[in-house]
């Protein structure tokens, strides 16, 4: 028995050692850096006296990414207006860039609509971008803000859901997505007075964070897809296996 206790204690130590002593923490994996940068800029500019140096500091890290996805023109305009210390112009430029960013995220979703895991992140990033615009929209037109939020919800729904163990599967609906995308972009284009959303180039490598992304994710949202049933089948097989094993042993005894 002493040996047993020794072995057990050894196992206790082995099992506990790698578990880092850390309570669970929670977080939001769907942040959009551009939206965060804008919020910092807006705060710098809307203070008691506008801090253009601070706003430039928040904007600079974004320049490279903006140039890559929207061409050099938008970032250059912002920098020029920052130098001219024209607060309203900077904010208005940034609003337009945020709208273009939403258009860009939405275009990436439409281009590879079956890629559920990537699109979920993209829609979250588009939504986070809108959250940054929302205070400006809501203060002048609360109804429009509500309408856009509703459409973002619809857009998320339109991506479908692979469910859990085959429960709660929802089909993807490209028509619903396109209609939400149209409503959101048209409303924002009108509200922020953009001539066109076609500025910049939208490359194939466009994906969350601008990095090449895993694209072979599971694309199913379909009950008839066998992959959705694998987990349940494995559990059932394990249980059946145990029962069969028991019965066989019983019979033999």
């Amino acid at each position: 028995m002493k040996a047993t206790i020794a072995i057990a204690m050894l196992l206790v130590c082995c099992l506990l050692a790698p578990i880092s002593v850390q309570a669970y923490s929670y977080g939001d994996p769907n942040e959009e850096p551009l939206a965060e940068a804008y919020k910092k800029m807006a705060a710098e500019l809307n203070g008691a006296s506008p801090n253009f140096a601070g706003a430039k500091g928040a904007f600079d890290p974004m320049k490279q990414e903006l140039d890559m996805h929207m061409g050099p023109e938008p970032a250059q305009t912002v920098l020029t207006h920052l130098e001219e210390k024209d607060k309203q112009a900077v904010l208005s430029d940034m609003h337009k860039i945020l709208v273009l960013n939403i258009a860009r995220r939405m275009a990436s979703i439409a281009a590879d609509f079956e890629n559920y895991s990537q699109n979920k992140t993209l829609i979250a990033k588009a939504n986070a971008t809108y959250e940054a615009l929302s205070p400006t929209v809501k203060q002048t037109d609360a109804a429009l803000d509500e309408k856009i939020r509703k459409e973002f919800n619809n857009a998320l729904t339109s991506l479908g859901n692979p469910g859990l163990f085959g429960v709660g599967i929802k089909e993807a609906d490209k028509d619903l997505f396109e209609s939400s995308r149209g409503t959101i972009l048209n409303s924002l284009q009108d509200r922020f007075k953009l001539a066109s959303l076609e500025v910049g180039h939208f490359t194939d490598s466009d994906s969350p964070g601008g990095q090449a992304e895993q694209r072979d994710g599971n694309r199913t949202t379909d009950l008839s897809d066998p992959r959705n049933w694998i987990p349940l089948v494995i559990i059932v097989l394990a249980l059946v296996g145990v029962v069969a094993y028991t019965m066989r042993k019983r019979k033999r005894a």
Partner: peptide
């Protein structure tokens, strides 16, 4: 089996791993 179901729900093993790392690294 349940980890597989989670991977299916998240759209693949890689997205699930990414989420897990983001969560456990104390990213947030």
């Amino acid at each position: 089996a349940w980890a597989g179901a989670l991977a299916v729900s998240e759209g693949g093993v890689a997205p699930l791993m990414k989420l897990a790392f983001a969560f456990t690294e104390g990213h947030f």
